[in-house]
């Protein structure tokens, strides 16, 4: 188990390093950063001054190592607009986005896994077909449209839920649903497929031959094996959610990382965008690593590999 954990951790660190490299090069992919900061029609002398001030004139590997070294020490540069350290702004906004992500993925899993199990227990039943239809609709619906529809019905017509802001838990209900619903179909279908396969396996027959109660067979013996691919999928989907929160946070005006990203893009705040991408990527790497660990816990055979 320890060897496996270390191996996965090593891979995670390598991925994180690659991500840092890509994030760093973002500045240059979008063109000459000095020119971008100076703005259109700036004088050549001003551009050169900016280039020197921000250190864009140094060799690129020196810039990268310098940036990486600072990043490792929690210094992600200063925001061009907010005139504040980027790290401070990000860590002030991060909890909101993580909370939203956690609520959304919880909503998705709590809805999708039981539905997937039920669909597998009675395959091709009415229930199975209805859930398939919902899954197709869910996958086909753009999240911004779904979010607006939620606002229209729950916020405007029925006045059940607050539309914007983040003052109470109620504010998180619609954004979580809008963000989480998109993940539900994939999780549900994978749970169903996994359960169908596992339920026809020999060890389920053994469990029944022992006289175990149906619920115990289903949840102890079947679900634990069927859930393994779902864990990996949920981790990937959580990553997508962090990206998707840009749209959702903007719609619901939640002051999280996604909203910040949108603002930064509009204002060409490069260090901020760079840092947001880096932080979200690192979180994603971390979550994938945790999913690997959870899977190793669930399936002892993985621990050997």
């Amino acid at each position: 188990m320890l060897a496996y954990s270390l191996k996965r951790l090593g891979v995670a660190l390598l991925v994180a390093l690659t991500v840092s490299l890509i994030t760093f090069s973002m500045i240059y992919i979008s063109g000459d950063p000095a020119l971008a900061i100076a703005g259109e029609g700036a004088r050549q002398q001003d551009v050169e001054n900016i280039r020197r001030f921000y250190g864009f004139d140094r060799p690129i590997y020196v810039q990268y190592l310098d940036w990486l070294w600072s990043a490792l020490h929690g210094d992600l540069g200063r925001s061009y607009n907010l005139r504040q350290p980027v790290a401070d702004v990000i860590f002030q906004r991060l909890p909101t986005t993580m909370l939203l992500g956690a609520c959304a993925i919880t909503f998705a899993l709590v809805l999708a896994i039981p539905l997937g199990v039920l669909a597998a227990v009675k395959p091709n039943s009415i229930f199975d077909r209805v859930s398939l239809t919902l899954a197709v609709i869910g996958q086909a619906m753009p999240s911004f449209w779904f979010a607006l529809t939620l606002i229209l019905w729950f916020g405007v017509y029925w006045r059940l839920l607050p539309i914007t802001g983040q003052d109470s838990w109620w504010n998180f209900v619609m954004p979580s649903i809008a963000l989480g619903y998109y993940v539900t179909p994939a999780v549900m279908r994978l749970t169903r497929a996994g359960m169908l396969e596992v339920l026809s396996s020999d060890y389920i027959r053994t469990a029944r031959a022992k006289g175990l109660k149906p619920m115990r067979v289903l949840f102890k013996h079947a679900l634990r094996n069927a859930i393994i691919p779902v864990v990996a999928l949920a981790a990937v989907q959580f990553g997508f959610m962090l990206g998707g929160s840009i749209v959702i946070e903007t719609i619901f005006q939640i002051n999280g990382l996604g909203y910040l990203a949108w603002e930064s893009i509009q204002r060409k705040d490069l260090p901020m965008m760079q840092a947001i991408v880096l932080v979200l990527s690192i979180i994603y790497v971390l979550i994938t690593f945790l999913a690997d660990m959870l899977n190793a816990f669930l399936d002892p055979r993985i621990r050997v590999a």
Binding site: A207, A209, G211
Partner: peptide, 21 residues
Amino acid sequence: DIRGNRMAMIFQEPMTSLNPA
């Protein structure tokens, strides 16, 4: 209540008859 208690079964495939988890 009877299965596994008063009568039990042994299967053909020992490789897949035990839960891997």
